[in-house]
């Protein structure tokens, strides 16, 4: 009983520690003062008006959303076949191949960004949306791969065999048996991938321009020269967008799989 209470207290403390900065951020975005202040001095939405009337912010927000969505989609299209190949087949260099696919997880993004810029420069792929996209696909694919791979178990393979045995060809089997089984991993991986892409500064910074900017890079540039409540408003807007996305996913496909285990 004492242990239980202790765990509750520690958990509450941890939650508070994690959530408090967000509360501070949202609070500060509502201040009427011209500088960041918490608790907010008076309540106003004027900083939101400031950012939403600023076409640069809106454009960056859209760029980031597009970028994250495209990178996630491409990551899924790359990671699922890769995961199937790694889990189902033995081929020379399989170990090296899977290590290579996961390596962006451990490589500093700054290094990756610099390398991509150099390489992109030599083939004329720099400072545009596609250059950004290539980089983001590289860093987010491992997330999808990591979450899908564990679901491609032996049992899963036996189910695919059962499907083929019952007369389904490879494509039918994939859509009717494999995909529903890896769906939870796909959703989890896609969430991680989207967020990772959406908040990335280090990689994006090499290929962004004044006209083409992502929201985190925009913020990063802005806070170097001035700190006012508009950045808190941008951050809060991002948090709200993320919360809405998570709730939508929970309502449609469900997030139970993140906390419970079927087996």
């Amino acid at each position: 009983m004492i242990l239980r209470n202790l765990i509750c207290i520690v958990a509450l403390f941890g939650m508070t520690f994690l959530v408090l900065p967000l509360a501070v951020l949202v609070g500060a975005s509502l201040t009427t003062s011209e500088f960041l202040a918490f608790p907010p001095q008076g309540l106003t939405l004027k900083w939101y008006a400031v950012i939403f009337s600023n076409p640069t912010y809106v454009a960056s927000f859209l760029t980031s959303t597009w970028l994250a969505a495209s990178a996630t989609l491409i990551a899924i299209l790359l990671a699922v076949p890769a995961a199937l190949a790694v889990s189902r087949y033995d081929f020379p260099g399989k170990g090296a191949f899977s290590a290579f696919l996961l390596s962006p997880l451990v490589l500093p993004h700054l290094v990756l960004g610099a390398a991509l810029l150099q390489f992109g420069g030599s083939i004329g792929l720099t400072r545009n949306f596609w250059a950004l996209l290539v980089g983001h696909v590289v860093i987010v694919t491992p997330f999808v791969l990591r979450t899908v791979l564990p679901l491609l178990s032996r049992e899963q393979q036996a189910m695919e065999e059962a499907s083929r045995d019952l007369g389904a060809d490879g494509v039918t089997t994939f859509f009717l048996v494999t995909l529903p089984q890896i769906r939870s991993g796909l959703v989890a991986g896609a969430i991680f991938a989207f967020i990772t892409s959406f908040i990335n500064v280090e990689l994006s910074i090499f290929n962004t321009t004044a006209e083409l900017n992502t929201i985190p890079v925009q913020l990063f540039n802005y806070v170097q020269y001035s700190v006012d409540p508009s950045i808190a408003a941008v951050s809060s807007a991002t948090i709200v967008a993320a919360a809405v996305a998570i709730i939508l996913i929970d309502l449609t496909v469900g997030l139970d799989f993140l906390t419970t285990n079927d087996d």
């Binding site: 049992e155 036996a158 189910m159 065999e161 059962a162 499907s163 083929r164 045995d165 019952l166 007369g167 389904a168 060809d169 048996v177 089984q181 079927d262």
Partner: peptide, 18 residues
């Protein structure tokens, strides 16, 4: 290929579609 063979299989751990 397996899906065109005129036979069926009962698998060891059943391999039902959950």
């Amino acid at each position: 290929p397996a899906h065109r063979r005129p036979l069926n299989t009962v698998f060891q751990n059943y391999a039902l579609f959950p």
